[in-house]
Write a protein that binds this DNA or RNA. Structure first.
Length: 410
DNA sequence: TCTGGGGTCCTAGGACCC
DNA sequence: TCTGGGGTCCTAGGACCC
């Protein structure tokens, strides 16, 4: 059956929200960053991008390429609030809204076309409403599936609208580099290049057996992707697969070697993991400890599985500490991470009431902020008991009010 | 003064059981 | 004691996304 899918990508989302909240920032090159000194640039405004500022750059590097760069410390509440409201707008057009990240969603409007006329009409209305309510722009791709809709939304930024009709697909893909497809990253693109496959057109015509020999189970999928085929459904909020792991990791403000300090930090991470696991209504059998050393490049992870399911912070901490004690640290530690997996979902955890659903949505949206390179210690730092925060020299009180107020997550 | 932090999925090898 | 094969669970590591 022919579907009509929209992919909506908020343009420079965090930066746009900040520029909207503070008129003094509009038209200026700004960068949204985390609060630590080891932060990177999460999002930059188009004015900053024009000067060469890129997502993922260290802050000092951004300032080097753009000395007039205005630095704004990110405020996750503002972004989750705005994202939640924007997704509510989407749901006025279809219940089939899949949140991909804090600033990207897919909409399956196949069954809404009769009401609203056309996908373009829906797209224009959504753009107008987002601009009117939040003063920010988005790029929208309209296509027969998620893969192509996402590709399409990337083609015109900012404030773009790109329609890919079924009959346009082969022409669009013929010269499209394979790396533009969501799912083909640097390594896969390189391996394909070695096979003399550079474009989607070439990928789509490649012998399937050849792809399977090289890539295994994803070989046939790669060929489909080259042809623009994607049957994956839009999975609305509430119908997603259950979460499979809950973890936190943090780069320390400075490298540490002192075992006591490392243990304190581990306890904080365990508390963050435990409280979120309890909020999600899950417990897990496997605890994973991750360590990155001061040289940045060397790191290791170790996991251990228990006979029973746990989600109490103390138990997670004890397990993580048990792993730590089996190794000898060879360098000062730059980053520590703890995660809980092999999860069991407790019964009756799905919120029934709309306001509870909204709260859970806000929580999950906040989680997805971190998928945007956020270094938002404060989000979960507030969950660390005061007794742990007091006297800690590891996670600093990193919250810095940025003067923009009167926004509450409901 | 370098370089975040959330996830998911896949592979490979070993232990253990039938 | 040897030859097997299948299945499950475990750990470790890598690729991908934002």
């Amino acid at each position: 059956m022919n579907r009509t899918i929209l992919h909506i990508d908020m343009n420079a989302f965090f930066a746009s929200v900040e520029q909207q909240a503070d008129p003094a920032l509009r038209g200026k090159p700004i960068a949204v960053v985390g609060s630590g000194h080891r932060t990177v640039i999460t999002t930059s405004s188009y004015e900053a991008r024009a000067k060469g500022v890129k997502t993922g750059m260290a802050l000092w590097e951004g300032k080097r390429v753009c000395p007039e760069l205005i630095v704004v410390i990110g405020d996750n509440r503002k972004y989750t609030y705005t994202s939640t409201r924007i997704n509510e707008i989407f749901r006025d057009y279809t219940p089939e809204v899949e949140v991909f990240s804090i600033d990207e969603s897919w909409l399956d409007v196949t069954h809404s076309l009769g009401i609203f006329g056309s996908a373009e009409t829906i797209a224009y209305q959504i753009k107008a409403r987002i601009r009117h309510s939040f003063g920010i722009t988005c790029s929208i791709g309209i296509a027969p599936n998620k893969l192509l809709a996402k590709l399409a939304s990337d083609l015109h930024k900012p404030d773009g609208l790109t329609v890919v009709k079924p009959e346009d697909v082969s022409r669009l893909l013929e010269r499209m580099p394979v790396g533009e497809l969501c799912g083909i990253g640097k390594k896969t693109a390189y391996q394909l290049k070695v096979m003399s496959i550079n474009t989607c057109g070439e990928l789509g015509r490649c012998d399937e057996a050849r792809l399977t020999r090289k890539f295994g189970i994803i070989g046939p999928r790669l060929k489909e992707m080259g042809q623009g085929i994607d049957h994956s459904p839009v999975v609305p909020f509430g119908a997603e697969e259950e979460v499979k792991s809950v973890g936190h990791s943090r780069t320390l403000e400075r490298d540490i070697s002192d075992p006591g300090e490392i243990r304190r930090f581990l306890l904080q991470l365990s508390e963050m993991v435990g409280s979120r696991a309890r909020r999600y209504g899950v417990s897990g059998k496997t605890v994973h400890l991750y360590v990155r050393y001061a040289d940045f490049f060397s790191s290791w992870g170790k996991q251990t599985s228990l006979k029973r399911y746990i989600n109490l912070s103390d138990e997670i901490y004890a397990t993580a500490l048990g792993i730590l004690e089996t190794v000898e640290l060879t360098q000062p530690v730059r980053l520590l991470g703890v995660s809980l997996s092999n999860l069991k979902h407790h019964a009756e955890q799905l919120p029934l009431f709309e306001d509870e659903r909204k709260k859970l949505f806000a929580t999950q949206a906040m989680d997805k902020i971190n998928a945007r390179f956020g270094n938002m210690v404060v989000t979960y730092g507030s969950l660390v008991p005061d007794r742990e925060k007091a006297g800690s020299h590891v996670i600093p009180p990193s919250w810095q009010p940025d003067g923009i107020k009167n926004l509450t997550v409901t």
